[in-house]
Design a protein around this nucleic acid. Structure first.
Lengths: 322, 322
DNA sequence: TTGTACGCGTTATCAC
DNA sequence: GTGATAACGCGTACAA
């Protein structure tokens, strides 16, 4: 016999009334509430959440999908988990390692009612494939998605990129190298377009020979700088995929005795704490706020309440590397 | 009518046989299996995991408890999620922000069958309080626990610390400052004892006036260095709570024009990628392997299989800051 | 305010 | 190999 049944028996009340007390319904007499509450405490009762979820059809769990839990997604993850918890939701991590089948398991879990909704941080499956899962629960993406099948709360990184470009050119740096992340990413595409349009509009050279892709980590940055120095010509400035890459560039440049920013200017992306510590010029990216937006979008469906999202903007943070 | 019932009806087989096919039982005739499988595909069937969990009493979910998802715990988190997934378990993050009540919710979730087990990364409640939850499922801690009520897979950080001390003293650095993390942490205690015993055994001064606590981030490190330089005497070397603190120290020292390591030696802890990039001497800490150990300990109960854990050791990684 | 009866979707234990 | 039947623990129309 379950504890629920024990409470029924000991209190003399019915299943419905006990359930009402558990869920703080107002339609219960004070005596009933008091008596049942006392017995619950005495029995050290907690509801079985699987039974609750089965009955209500909700688990109050949200899945977050990403290739791996790297530094770059850390503040998004942290903020999302926190705000979700504030609204009574737990967060389940799905790390895919960039594998399509792994990733689909998360979506299958939406179908099988393990999670009420999904946030995509990074994903490798095509939106067309994922679209089929939208009927099973709300899905929102941080990563930009082509074709509006999956709603996205992404900001246009091209805007942030333009801030960096204006800053560099205003200081006289016109020969600029670009270090991008995933080549097929829409963020990369947006940054690249921003660069090309900006340079062309100023009549400045578009150096596609200084495009580097799949540059994510400090080590990647270090390697790229070695390639650049080995080339026929050095850029005056480097625009990095993120702050960690910028750290790699900065460190390698220091080792080579390059004067920063006189011989090489460096701009990061995201404005992490380390960029501040190491004096790296960067673009402030309101990542935590975007995590909040992502949750709000899910909450609009799960909680049936629209939340007004704040307007977000990139900002240039000038430091010692420019 | 649920899809399960539809399958029963369409196939003509009973509830039990359908269940057997779903769970790949061998006691099913080929015809039955084929027919039912076909209908399952046609109906696009997936089992409801809440119903499964309610029936089996297992959720295949493991909770991971920590104050927040910081860089320091990142590789532990990443590895744990990965290995758990390999064994069919999902990971739920419980961020407590250092709040006792928040933390207890994770343990209540073990009681209410939302998770099958728990890993503690950091925790603030007393082991005596937590002990009561051990009967509801396996719990293992990465953080060291006094009194063996909660099993821990922690390594003795004092050992790693001794490696750093030997290295420093061998190079002639004897006036050493220590930057610790949480003052009440057993890791801190272990490091402090290692320092004091080591120095005393060598007849060297124990500089308790150079103890600093709650030093976690690069910014914290920067602040501490300012305090040190403002003091009456500068240490020759700084032992840091982790690599991020070391980065803060290194950066601040560079700004002040201090020669590293001649005027100030720096040793980090953990051997993160950034320590490599920035040339910081550090102690290699097999964090991912400890995450594996943690899962094995849970698996010993959940999967009823003992896994032989590898022997782990700290290592000194000498770089340019010593 | 309270109780009845049923539903949620699956697993498990028996028989046969 | 197959099939009734009973759990699993709780929510909830609906009626009283």
């Amino acid at each position: 016999m379950s504890k629920f049944d024990e409470i029924m028996k000991l209190s003399g009340y019915s299943r419905a009334t006990v359930s009402r007390v558990i869920n703080h319904s107002r339609h219960v007499s004070p005596e009933a509430r008091e008596k049942i509450t006392a017995i619950m405490k005495q029995l050290n009762y907690v509801p079985n959440r699987n039974a609750v979820s089965l009955s209500t059809g909700q688990t109050n769990q949200i899945g977050i999908v990403m290739a791996s839990t790297s530094e770059v997604v850390l503040s998004f993850l942290n903020q999302f988990v926190d705000i979700a918890m504030d609204y009574g939701f737990q967060t389940i991590i799905y790390t895919t390692r960039g594998d399509k089948e792994n990733e689909l398991r998360a979506f299958e879990d939406l179908r099988s009612k393990r999670v009420d909704g999904l946030v995509i941080v990074t994903c490798v499956n095509k939106p067309r494939v994922l679209k089929a899962y939208c009927e099973y629960g709300p899905i929102v993406s941080w990563q930009r998605m082509d074709s509006g099948e999956i709603p996205s709360i992404a900001m246009d990184q091209g805007e942030g990129y333009r801030l960096a470009l204006e800053h560099l050119v205003a200081r006289g740096y016109t020969r600029i190298a670009n270090l991008f992340g995933r080549i097929e990413s829409l963020n990369t595409q947006s940054r690249r377009e921003a660069y090309e349009q900006f340079m062309q509009s100023r009549g400045l050279p578009v150096r596609t020979d200084w495009y580097h892709y799949s540059v994510f980590t400090p080590t990647d940055g270090t390697k790229v700088l070695q390639q650049l120095t080995a080339g026929p010509e050095m850029p005056q400035a480097v625009l990095c995929a993120n702050d960690y890459v910028a750290i790699g560039i900065q460190s390698a440049a220091n080792k080579l005795g390059l004067q920063i920013p006189r011989q090489l200017a460096i701009v990061g992306f995201d404005d992490t704490e380390l960029a501040d510590t190491l004096g790296i010029t960067t673009i402030y990216n309101p990542i935590a706020e975007q995590a909040t937006h992502a949750f709000y979008r899910l909450w609009a469906v799960l909680g049936k309440q629209q939340m007004e999202p704040a307007q977000l903007q990139y900002k240039l943070i000038a430091r010692q590397t420019t």
